[in-house]
Design a protein around this nucleic acid. Structure first.
Lengths: 295, 295
DNA sequence: TTCTGTGATACCCGCCAGGTATCAGCCCGG
DNA sequence: CCGGGCTGATACCTGGCGGGTATCACAGAA
């Protein structure tokens, strides 16, 4: 039974994502013919048709969809193996194995929760060094899966906890953030229906799996972009209450009557055996048991 | 950033498991020198020392331990990708995508639970075909991780549920199974201490991660072997109560006063999106809500 | 000492991943 | 109805590297 090479998986995933051999080849930094050939060989070795080559374009078969999904997680796992090994190795030189943790967070979100967590953990004896890796929307899950982070603050339901161990830290309601000058900003409370179909305020779109779905709203990647677009009167956003910390003067926040709550979890790869990580988790769970400091 | 090839991972994992280049090369079906070279290249590319080559043998560095662990899961993930794609593809030919599920179980364990589950599921409309894949001790977890099975009955604490979604189906106590002629077989109840240090009945050992740890007891791989060894008066075993179904005349079962209970879970890979799987899970959870048929 | 067993080195060869040039079908616009 | 411009597939060549054999360097045991 021959095993898949990561090269083959990389190639297939690129083609499956682009649905175009030429663009995929360009993204991979190679010519198109060897890419075509490699994918054909892959199909022959698996004994399965992965792509339907129609004139003008390519579609995924069912098996292709399966391989796209499974292949992504396999590639993530190998990338994680490389990254975690490198990280451990380069921190290895002092024989007191001073561990170093990377925590993935969403820039500007859960800011004071993170602050309290880091403060509390730093006070622990034997606290490891912690590096904060801030990413854009929904990037934390990916950071955890491909090994860029050892642990992350994930916000559900925007991220999936599937495959991770996790602890819930915080649940909060949501508010609508509108341009202060917009008529709706005067309302005391809004419903999702109120803001979902306002012609001059199309809901912003953020990347899912690295690419944007088509739609009317502007494309955003982080809170700064979003904040600016709201301030300019171009869009409206539904965000957790704790986001009030980064509101501008040009923004208005209105409570939402019917938005489902969001919760922040601390999550880490299943079977992790790092002592430093265990300490951080312990600190985090203790944090939610203690009364939160008022501010 | 160059990515690890699965070939390199396979090589390193083999060496790390054997701790011997020659044997690892033999296991891989190749000569020793290219294997040495490949591992050296891997170390250079990662910029990390993975192995300490001492005369007579090889030891893992810290980074090597990390890579062994992470590399195994990465290899499992790629194997799973190949298997699941093949499976889907070969079942794809009839355009009514008749799905097929593989359920991993421990041979002879949880037998009537499995029977009830399969019966109940078969009665469902649109039930998919189910293949039962019986394995040895603790092999079910591995079957799930490398894609041989879509779903499995896992017995905790012998298997880990980490990284899977799961539902608990059954919790039961444990009994000691002894040779009927042994003096201890006459007792009405036993404690773990009673059987843990009987010189003429050393506890049998079963594989962890594919290899046996050293110890006095005989090595067993499945229930048949175990049953025979008990019947021969060579060993004693601690098993779930439901194992009474496979006892022989030469066996005696004695309740244990202080053995921690074991529970059987139905588990499946996180993010699984198979409809047939969802149906099976639904059936299983309904099964534990309904009163179990007396027998 | 010499023998044995370890992993590393030296050197060679054949395969295959990747390149370039080109083809083959289809959908345009004219 | 025809040619240009897309698409992905094919043909063919070349270089690098993965793998083989032979050998070395070294340490421990008899």
């Amino acid at each position: 039974m021959d095993t898949l090479e990561t090269r083959e998986l990389r190639y297939f995933v690129a083609v499956a994502e682009e649905l175009h051999f030429g663009r995929a080849a360009e993204r991979l930094g190679m010519a198109q013919p060897p890419l075509s050939r490699a994918v054909q060989q892959l199909e022959r070795r698996l004994g399965v048709s992965l792509l339907e080559r129609d004139r003008r374009g390519v579609r995924l078969t069912g098996a292709g969809q399966v391989l796209l999904h499974e292949g992504r997680t396999a590639l993530d796992a190998t990338a994680a193996a490389a990254r975690r090994t490198r990280r451990f190795g380069s921190a290895d030189h002092p024989d007191g194995p001073r561990e170093r943790l990377v925590i993935g967070v969403k820039a500007a979100a859960s800011h004071d929760l993170l602050q309290r967590l880091l403060d509390a953990y730093a006070a622990e004896p034997d606290a490891a060094e912690i590096e904060v890796l801030a990413g854009g929307f929904n990037e934390q899950e990916q950071m955890l899966r491909d090994g860029r982070a050892d642990v992350a603050l994930l916000i559900v339901p925007f991220n999936s906890l599937a495959g991770f161990d996790s602890e819930e830290l915080l649940t909060e309601g949501r508010i609508a953030v509108l341009p202060a000058r917009h008529p709706l900003a005067a309302r005391k409370v809004l419903s999702m229906a109120d803001i979902s179909d306002v012609p001059d305020l199309p809901i912003a779109r953020w990347p899912r799996h690295g690419s944007y779905e088509p739609g009317p709203g502007p494309e955003v990647r982080d809170h700064t972009q979003l904040a600016q677009l709201i301030a300019l009167g171009r869009t409206v956003a539904v965000v957790p209450e704790s986001a009030r910390t980064w509101l501008w003067h040009e923004h208005a926040a209105v409570p939402l009557s019917d938005a489902p709550p969001v919760s922040t979890h601390i999550a880490w790869p299943a079977h992790s055996r790092s002592l430093a990580l265990a300490g951080l988790i312990r600190t985090a769970t203790r944090l939610i048991a203690d009364p939160a400091p008022t501010h």
